[in-house]
Nucleic acid binder design. Sequence first.
DNA 1: ATTCGTAACGGAAACGTTTGCGTGTTGAGA
DNA 2: TCTCAACACGCAAACGTTTCCGTTACGAAT
Lengths: 358, 358
Amino acid sequence: MKRKVTLKQIAKELDVSISTVSRALSNSKEIGEETRQKIQAFAKFYNYKPNNIALSLKNRKTKTIGILIPEIVHHFFSTVIRGIEIVANKRGYNVIIGLSNESFSKEVINMEMLANGSIDGFILSISKETLLKQDYHHFKETISQGIPIVMFDRVVNEVDCDKVIVDDFKGSVNAVKKLISTGCKNIALITTMDYVSVGKLRTQGYLRALQESHMNPKASLILKLDDSLALEEHLDILENEIEQFFNSNTKIDGVFAVNELYAVTAMKVARKLNFNIPEDIQVIGFTDGVLSKHARPSLTTVSQHGQKMGEQAAHLLIDRLELDDDDESDTYIDENEIDSDFKTVVIETGLIERDSTK
Amino acid sequence: MKRKVTLKQIAKELDVSISTVSRALSNSKEIGEETRQKIQAFAKFYNYKPNNIALSLKNRKTKTIGILIPEIVHHFFSTVIRGIEIVANKRGYNVIIGLSNESFSKEVINMEMLANGSIDGFILSISKETLLKQDYHHFKETISQGIPIVMFDRVVNEVDCDKVIVDDFKGSVNAVKKLISTGCKNIALITTMDYVSVGKLRTQGYLRALQESHMNPKASLILKLDDSLALEEHLDILENEIEQFFNSNTKIDGVFAVNELYAVTAMKVARKLNFNIPEDIQVIGFTDGVLSKHARPSLTTVSQHGQKMGEQAAHLLIDRLELDDDDESDTYIDENEIDSDFKTVVIETGLIERDSTK
DNA sequence: ATTCGTAACGGAAACGTTTGCGTGTTGAGA
DNA sequence: TCTCAACACGCAAACGTTTCCGTTACGAAT
């Protein structure tokens, strides 16, 4: 077991000082040609690599970014991670992952763990419980400690930071308009409780689309489901809920669902009730994941472009990190300047038309 | 922007020495009651948290484990990560993720980046390209540097380390036997090229099951597909391949596929060719993911229990890390002892019976 | 011969901790 | 009054780097 070789060991072995070794390896021309060659050869032979931790301590930056998400077994989130990882790696950063599991306390704990020097900045999506409690102190404290945050998808106005979102509102409007334009008269909405920002926006989009087409929204056409039903374990309950919903609204000829699972379940129920898709009922979902492609019939969805969101988020964060490098000067003057230029990047959604619509 | 407070600052502010502050905060009884209270109160007020990087440098351990996987947008891998994260967090570790994207060089690069002090140990699944090249020097070097590795799912005999696998062979045998016992006479196998270990084992399981039932395997019933077809972009090509396969083997009444995608695609093709499932053709897949639950009909699968694999892997790694703590003594004597007790944990597969089988 | 510039290198601080050891003060026992 | 614990605390090293600031030696210029 040959431990990694350090500068000190090289120095001792070659009978020079540590600083000479360090300089020789960084090709400083302060060191004589001969010694430099000797040191570099020795270092290469013993496969010297500088210790990251020591560098982090010295430079006061870790070159790693922390990702904090509610759940990882989730197509959307994992595509975002992939996006982040790609640009992070390309720009010389590592990513470290924390899962909140939709829990407020886990989010706080994780955040504090990583904020103690482990990472340079955060990219995160807020947990449901946090959104419910509307307690954002941990984000604000982290930011005030000089650790930048970039939020994606589930964001919140109360926190000043860079954000990356999709236009949930516009995406929904377009989806519902598509249903309208293909003849739907009674479009149902299957959504979640309002507290998760994205659910709310998608609901608003649905309403706006109806309004713009001079159609009256009916409460009976809106099904609000508890989030826990989205868990795989409660599939049957979800199915029952939707079946009841369908049965008490026989005229439904279009469904807009705020996520993939609701949409495919709606299709399943519709078929069970002997509706034909898309002839009798058309269905559109939000979030383009694996299910949409393989459902029968394949599902028309609003695509969120998770990977692109991740890439954008990573760029935003790293840009800010490297910008901060220069202004280490502790100039209090331009704090306002800096505060004010937080960006919110909006990723365009797309409507991927498949077989569940005409 | 209030930077994180350090021991030094507290010491200065309270006019004591750094060591006194450190001891007071760790409740050392070497420090007088009064000073201790004062320091603790001050620290709490300014929300002092020890700097992780400094601790890592001092303790020569980072309390974070590196995960290296081929792909993250993949149900199986993300469940494994979830498993790892859960026990890692519970035992006080963080996880940092690297993606090889099935590329040998990215695997090496990522490994070297993290091995330079960033992590205490690895949990990984080998990339396809690495398996093809059969070049495992990076694993061996990492291990010889004192950084333990735990491999899961895609493992390899050439490297001495802890491993966590599912019994691909036995799982496949059971699946195929299930098909046989329900009357299938001509069972097709849809698999990948042999170089990925798991594909090979599953193929062997298929053959063994036939053999034990005194059925002759026919080459015409085995479809070996290129891995690239598993990508979502090439769905149609995949579909065509399978359709041709079905057309040239009209007697097929059972299908065993080595992954979920091949299985659902086979079902899609079968239905298109007007076969009824499970009456005319039964189908079983490997890997229980989202698709299996929501396919029509729902797919009977061999479940891999990814989360459990992750949990086991994390336990194995952390156990070894904390064991190594004690034997820092540089005793050369028992190196053999230690080398020899590498464990290979086998996770039992289960057959989840759904509607694609009788 | 003295000064000076410069090439080539070493010392030490700093990043933020922990910890072994040393040291000063106090009180009690002889 | 002297000695000696015990107590309460400070110093400094160490983890592995980088970098600022010396210091030495030597040849050249004055």
